[in-house]
């Protein structure tokens, strides 16, 4: 029972939410947001995709293996932890600074954001692998 209205609208809305969730992720450090919320938002987007187009279509548009997201995310977070360890500092010490990019002007980068990105990947991986398994069963 495909509904064309849903399909067309969701294609548009999809990008709105996706951009919004990345936005949430990147500014997590200074304002409400962060890995968990952004991860959930992105999974919400993929769910919408599932709802509208069905899991089959999802594979053509987004050939991502969500189960791989989990180890990759964990690896990134672990690395952000291990790198300072290698440098002699205690595990997971984070560095941060301010850099000004040409377009965006002065922005603040922090290694904690990398860690957050790892968390983001894990959360997306977890939610989506559960849902895809349930959905496609």
């Amino acid at each position: 029972m495909k509904s064309f209205i849903l399909e067309t609208v969701s294609k548009v809305v999809l990008f709105v939410i996706l951009i919004f969730s990345f936005y949430l992720l990147l500014r997590g450090h200074n304002a409400p947001g962060g890995g968990f919320i952004a991860g959930l938002m992105t999974s919400a987007t993929f769910i919408l995709l599932y709802l509208a187009l069905g899991p089959g279509a999802r594979k053509q548009i987004l050939p991502l293996n969500f189960r791989a997201f989990i180890p990759v995310g964990l690896l990134i977070s672990a690395l952000t932890g291990l790198v300072p360890l290698a440098g002699g500092k205690p595990f997971l010490t984070s560095a941060f600074g301010y850099a000004d990019l040409p377009v965006f002007g002065e922005i603040e980068w922090a290694t904690a954001m990398l860690f957050d990105f790892g968390v983001y990947l894990v959360v997306v991986g977890v939610t989506m692998s559960i849902i895809s398994v349930l959905g496609e069963e």
Binding site: M1, K2, V13, M41, A44, Y50, L51, P55, G56, E136
Partner: peptide, 24 residues
């Protein structure tokens, strides 16, 4: 707003065919 929309769509889909992600 996003989630409201998402939940109502999901509920509606569930009502129709009973399977939220209908395999095409």
């Amino acid at each position: 707003a996003i989630l409201g929309f998402l939940s109502s769509v999901a509920l509606a889909k569930f009502l129709i065919g009973g399977s939220v992600f209908d395999r095409d």
